[in-house]
């Protein structure tokens, strides 16, 4: 990587760093139980839960597996499963 003058970098470039590799537990979303309230989207510190049309998608490229979405989900639609390494 060629360095810049003064180490000034373009914003939004952290998308190039996949924090999903940090994950020990994987949140699994059960759309059957999901009430589409959006809490999981809101509480994710890693902006890793997205809404696509009618479906919620967990972005495993970035999800660190903190479990916050699962703990906060009022419908118990998210369960944490050990990652197979």
């Amino acid at each position: 990587m060629e360095i810049t003058i003064g180490a000034v970098v373009q914003g939004g470039t952290s998308l190039g760093y996949k924090t999903g590799t940090w994950r020990d537990e994987r949140p699994i979303l059960d759309m059957e139980q999901c009430k589409a309230c959006g809490v999981c989207v809101s509480v994710c510190p890693d902006s890793a839960v997205h809404v696509k049309g009618e479906t919620y998608i967990i972005d495993y490229d970035y999800c660190k597996g903190c479990g916050l979405c699962g703990y906060e989900c009022p419908a118990d639609a998210i369960s944490m499963v050990k990652e197979e390494k």
Binding site: M1, I3, I5, G6, A7, V8, V9, Q10, G11
Partner: peptide
Amino acid sequence: VNSLDVNDPKSWGSYAEEDMLMEFKYA
């Protein structure tokens, strides 16, 4: 050359590891 500007958001004050710190100082 660079400026804090909402129309071109750049980040200043990076953290540099041992693989490039020396190069910044050399520059």
